[in-house]
């Protein structure tokens, strides 16, 4: 069982590109309710398919990039942290679909970070410390994935 970020990162570093994507999808699925954009749901279905073609993955990536641009905070507009949680979920989806080697720390690590940021955004609204809980859940998710 993974219990800290050092073990978490080490475990992620040991995964190949396909495994990183599949692990990242599981992280994103855990925070999907924070995002209302249907494109993210649909893209994660594609990403969760271990046999998805390169074209299908590229199309899904294009779709989540468009979703991310649609939901970022607008400069000067009143910040809505609940909406911002959705933005970070969309960014996590981008990370999940980005080919390995193009993101610092790896796709799955970046997806995990954005998912935690989504929970942090939610916690700014609620005052609960849900970001910490997400980290713990990610340890469990990855442990389960490694053992599956």
């Amino acid at each position: 069982m993974i219990t800290n970020d050092r073990e978490f990162r080490a475990a992620l570093d040991g995964l190949d590109a396909r495994q990183q994507r599949l692990a990242a999808v599981r992280f994103v699925e855990d925070v999907l309710p924070l995002c209302t954009d249907e494109r993210i749901n649909r893209a994660m279905v594609v990403a969760a398919d271990g046999g998805a073609s390169t074209t299908a993955l590229a199309d899904a990536l294009k779709s989540v990039k468009a979703a991310t641009i649609d939901c970022h905070a607008r400069c000067g507009a009143e910040g809505d942290w609940e909406a911002q949680a959705g933005y970070f979920v969309a960014r996590a989806a981008i990370a999940a679909l980005t080919p390995l080697g193009q993101l610092p720390g790896g796709s799955a690590w970046q997806a995990a970070m954005s998912c935690r940021m989504a929970q942090t955004s939610k916690s700014i609204v609620s005052g609960e410390n849900s970001g910490e809980l997400e980290t713990e859940r990610q340890y469990a998710i990855l442990s389960a994935y490694m053992n599956s």
């Binding site: 009143e78 942090t120 916690s123 970001g131």
Partner: peptide, 18 residues
């Protein structure tokens, strides 16, 4: 201008530190 308060910044800082 976007209504970002100190607790929000500290939350982002906390996340970044991790």
């Amino acid at each position: 201008p976007m209504g970002v308060k100190l607790p929000a910044l500290l939350a982002q800082i906390g996340h970044t530190e991790k």
